[in-house]
Design a protein around this nucleic acid. Structure first.
Lengths: 253, 253
DNA sequence: CGACACGTTGAGATATATCAAACGTGGTGG
DNA sequence: CCACCACGTTTGATATATCTCAACGTGTCG
């Protein structure tokens, strides 16, 4: 797949023209693979390039003084994982892979040229980083206002919607290559409590999460428990682009 | 004071040239006052302008289904409160004043022109919205990984650092015009528990918060309890710009 | 002076964390 | 092919942080 294939797919703001997508594709200097559970970069590093996630899953996180981490973002294919390093230069958090990934490297010099030449594209790139900020805010809501079940339900609902937008979920089932510890680091819970929450969701016939696969039995109920309202994702519609050649290749464990 | 006086003051990324600041100042179409505890805009509104906060304090927040709100951002003078509405058009949260405020209104048309003509300025504006995103991430860390005392200590430390950067704190005391309920909505706690946390901080001689004024007795201790590391604020240095004509005018109740 | 917002305190309930242990299960080496 | 190991999951018992409910105090402003 081409690097920029999924970038901003199905987002209502910042719809890329074919030409813009072409230009971004041309800005990719290098394509690389990384193994699962590898650190891409650490907090404080100075960056001269940004990373487009083409396949696989990544996270951004902040460690506390005892080394326990808080995951602050979960990334899916098509996410420009650290585009914010272009204006910011130094990042305040670390980035790691969850699965094996394919990434495209875009040098900041190329971005500088692109954005200087094309203010519309610049604004769309800007907008794409603000989608992450919108997600951060929703995560703040999740941590600050929802209880354990709500948080897990919210995360699953959100991920379902995001994956559906890029053709990785059919709307009720998808591969989610994380374990219960990760889920705890996302939702601010212990892995043990996550386990109990998952059992509850399973027993209530709302949703199951086993061997890296989510199956949603009762989506309305799940979204209601998570108080999930997808407007903050700025999605065009909630189904995948049928032109997008994505099948069942996403169930990686 | 001029509208853009404090914008990006003492931030290590995105240092504005005098000319850039002048241009932004010229883009201000209107200056306005709003009373305390007033809604500036509601989630979902379509915006054609953005708001520079000149004096006073504002918040951004998301309501849950029962109307309890989670504050997702706290804004101080010099913050471009909803600049992200320029690329995003529609916001996913509401914005309100805490105190009476003076604001400067900047039409998106003017921003469109400025950013098209001046890619460097565009990148700095972009960067300024990413500072908010960095703060969101730190807030996620706060909610996800810190206990009640830690969260309150972190917020006070952060606010101290931000206010010091614009000359509103001398490094250990500042006006903070919020009540304990607000503090609970920021830290994901009940007002009652915030009260107990504050008592603890007071009794331990770390910090007091009374009648809208914070006095920090033991800053290292406070910052350690809050695991506060200010790198995510991207501050040039931690003291105020001495050229900035700010005195004791900030203790509003 | 009374009303109202905000702060303070106490007692009890509850959600989540912690500690400890057992249970798969897939992968690896013998 | 089997034994074993590492990792993730599951469960139980107990501890603890925070919430909830209820009441009372305090200051400010009309």
């Amino acid at each position: 797949m081409r690097c920029m294939e999924l970038f901003l797919r199905n987002r209502s703001i910042a719809v890329l023209t074919d030409q813009e997508r072409e230009r971004l594709e041309a800005a990719v200097a290098e394509r690389r693979r990384l193994p699962a559970r590898a650190t891409l970069l650490d907090r404080g590093e100075h960056l001269r390039q940004s990373t487009m996630l083409v396949t696989g899953f990544m996270i951004r996180y902040i460690d506390d003084t005892e080394g326990r981490r808080q995951i602050v973002a979960f990334h899916v294919p098509g996410d420009f994982v650290d585009l914010h390093a272009f204006p910011l230069h130094v990042l305040d958090h670390s980035i790691a892979t969850l699965t094996g990934v394919e990434i495209g490297i875009v040098p900041h010099g190329a971005l500088k040229r692109l954005t200087a030449e094309d203010p519309d594209l610049a604004q769309k790139l800007w907008g794409s980083t603000l989608l992450d900020a919108a997600m951060h805010r929703e995560w703040l809501f999740r941590l600050g206002r929802l209880d354990a079940v709500g948080r897990v339900a919210h995360f699953i609902s959100e991920t379902n919607a995001r994956l559906a937008a890029i053709g990785y979920s059919d709307g009720k089932a998808f591969g989610l290559p994380i374990n219960q510890t990760d889920l705890g680091e996302i939702t601010g819970l212990t892995a043990i409590h996550v386990n109990r929450v998952l059992r509850m969701l399973r027993e209530e016939r709302i949703c199951t999460f086993r061997s890296s696969r989510v199956e949603i039995a009762d989506l309305p109920r799940l979204e209601q428990i998570g108080q999930f309202d997808p407007t903050y994702l700025y999605l065009e519609n909630r189904s995948a682009d049928p032109a997008s050649p994505l099948g069942e290749e996403n169930s990686n464990g």
